[in-house]
Computed example of a mutant assay.
Amino acid sequence: MGRSRTAQAEVEPSNGYGSLEELMALALQHEHGAMVQYANHAGLLSHWINPIFATSIQDIIADEVEHAVTLVNALAVRDVTPTLAVWPPRSGNQARELILMDIAAEQGAVELYSEMLEYDLDPALRTAITRIRDAEILHRNIFNDLLEKV
Score class of each variant (00 low, 15 high):
58 Q>L: 07
79 D>P: 00
78 R>G: 07
50 N>F: 00
71 L>S: 10
44 L>D: 04
52 I>T: 10
58 Q>D: 12
50 N>P: 01
64 E>D: 03
69 V>G: 02
57 I>T: 01
47 H>Q: 15
58 Q>W: 07
58 Q>V: 03
49 I>M: 12
49 I>H: 09
66 E>Y: 00
52 I>N: 06
61 I>F: 12
83 T>H: 06
40 N>V: 13
83 T>L: 07
49 I>W: 07
60 I>Y: 12
75 L>M: 09
48 W>I: 02
63 D>A: 10
54 A>V: 08
81 T>L: 11
78 R>K: 15
50 N>W: 07
40 N>M: 13
57 I>G: 02
46 S>H: 04
79 D>S: 10
71 L>T: 09
55 T>F: 13
76 A>T: 12
47 H>P: 03
65 V>W: 13
52 I>V: 09
68 A>G: 15
65 V>D: 09
79 D>W: 05
71 L>Y: 14
46 S>K: 00
58 Q>P: 01
45 L>P: 04
82 P>I: 00
45 L>F: 06
40 N>K: 15
60 I>H: 10
63 D>F: 05
67 H>Q: 08
38 Y>R: 01
61 I>Q: 09
58 Q>N: 15
76 A>N: 09
68 A>Y: 11
77 V>D: 12
80 V>G: 14
61 I>C: 04
62 A>F: 03
55 T>W: 14
64 E>N: 06
72 V>L: 05
56 S>T: 06
67 H>G: 02
76 A>L: 10
52 I>A: 13
52 I>P: 01
43 G>V: 02
38 Y>I: 02
49 I>F: 04
53 F>D: 06
76 A>H: 10
57 I>Q: 03
78 R>Y: 10
71 L>W: 09
38 Y>E: 05
42 A>S: 07
48 W>Q: 04
83 T>G: 12
41 H>G: 06
67 H>W: 02
68 A>L: 09
76 A>C: 05
65 V>H: 15
71 L>I: 15
72 V>R: 13
41 H>F: 12
51 P>A: 08
81 T>Y: 10
58 Q>T: 03
49 I>S: 03
55 T>L: 15
72 V>W: 07
74 A>K: 03
81 T>K: 11
46 S>C: 04
38 Y>N: 03
70 T>I: 11
46 S>G: 12
52 I>H: 03
76 A>Q: 14
82 P>Y: 00
83 T>S: 15
70 T>V: 09
60 I>P: 07
64 E>Y: 01
49 I>L: 15
40 N>E: 14
53 F>R: 07
72 V>A: 04
73 N>K: 12
49 I>D: 11
83 T>V: 04
74 A>I: 05
80 V>Y: 15
83 T>A: 11
40 N>H: 13
66 E>T: 07
42 A>M: 03
54 A>M: 05
42 A>Q: 01
65 V>C: 06
44 L>P: 00
51 P>K: 07
62 A>I: 03
68 A>D: 07
69 V>Y: 08
49 I>Y: 07
56 S>D: 14
77 V>E: 14
63 D>E: 14
78 R>S: 13
78 R>F: 04
74 A>P: 01
60 I>C: 12
55 T>P: 02
70 T>L: 05
53 F>N: 08
60 I>R: 11
46 S>V: 00
55 T>K: 15
80 V>S: 14
48 W>E: 05
57 I>R: 03
43 G>H: 07
62 A>N: 11
56 S>C: 04
62 A>D: 11
73 N>I: 01
79 D>Y: 11
54 A>G: 13
